[in-house]
Design a protein around this nucleic acid. Structure first.
Length: 246
DNA sequence: CCTCTATGGCGAA
DNA sequence: TCGCCCTAGAGGC
């Protein structure tokens, strides 16, 4: 694998893996790990702006010139990819990967995900469930969209303290979350609106409803018509239906 | 087409 | 607590 940093902010890191055999990619929550033969691992977190774009390597021609701020460029035999705008892009070792993962809760997309520690923390906490679900140390991988939509689907007010959430409610949310995130992974987009609430067309169709509450402040609830509310909770916008969620 | 906003998290202050 | 990252989708016109 040829690895470089056209932008210049990952030059040393790129040199640490350039020319090595790319072994595998794995993820835990929002953290991505690229393992290379010989040990070095590229740790990436996309954050708010980060994005990968892929392109086919032109046969017998040089790769296309980078467009914009390309932090990391990877070029293989057939395909190349450009990484722009990540919060984290660094080369680390196995022990450091363990340190990163040790700070994360279970990832619903992993086969080995164990919800028990997440429930242990939630059931003992007075913090709002809307904050706990966003805490990567409680559950890894949930973002603002899934947080808001999950609480709507389970009729739970985001400000309800974690210790006021019942075991049955948590179990139902976890099961639902695993299914929703698997659908999202498979489809490459977040799909959370049930067909019966689509008002005519499925939510995954272009231009159709995508969410129940996320970014719908001031609009009517798709189920009861009550105006969707929004507020800031620990620095992030929460959205909820004051009628459906208690 | 143009403008606004944010599917996060780090590090400086 | 604030600025940064500096992309790209959503929404308005």
């Amino acid at each position: 694998m040829t690895v470089s940093s056209p932008q210049g902010r990952f030059v040393d890191g790129a040199a640490g893996v350039d020319g090595r055999v790319f072994k595998r990619a794995s993820a835990w929550g929002k953290h991505l790990f690229h393992e290379y033969a010989g040990g070095p691992i590229v740790h990436v977190h996309l954050g708010l702006y980060g994005t990968f774009t892929e392109w086919a390597v032109p046969p017998q021609q040089p790769p296309p010139p980078p467009v914009g701020q390309v932090r990391m460029r990877m070029v293989g035999a057939e395909y190349g990819t450009d990484l722009r705008g990540p919060t984290i892009c660094e080369v680390i070792d196995e022990a450091q990967v363990a340190d990163v993962v040790a700070k994360l809760g279970p990832d619903p997309l992993r086969r080995d995900a164990d919800p028990v520690p997440a429930w242990a923390r939630i059931s003992k906490s007075r913090r709002p469930i809307g904050a706990l679900l966003m805490d990567q140390a409680v559950i890894a991988g949930i973002g603002n969209v899934y947080r808001n939509e999950l609480l709507y689907r389970h009729h739970i007010d985001p400000y309800r303290p974690g210790l006021m959430v019942s075991a049955d409610e948590f179990d139902a949310m976890w099961t639902d979350l695993v299914a929703l995130m698997q659908v999202g992974l498979r489809r490459g987009k977040i799909i959370v609106v049930r067909p019966e609430h689509d008002l005519g067309a499925p939510s995954y169709a272009p231009g159709r409803p995508r969410t129940y509450v996320y970014r719908r402040a001031g609009d009517p609830c798709r189920v009861c018509g009550t105006t969707i509310r929004t507020a800031e909770l620990e620095g992030r916008n929460v959205f909820w239906c004051p009628q459906c969620q208690t």
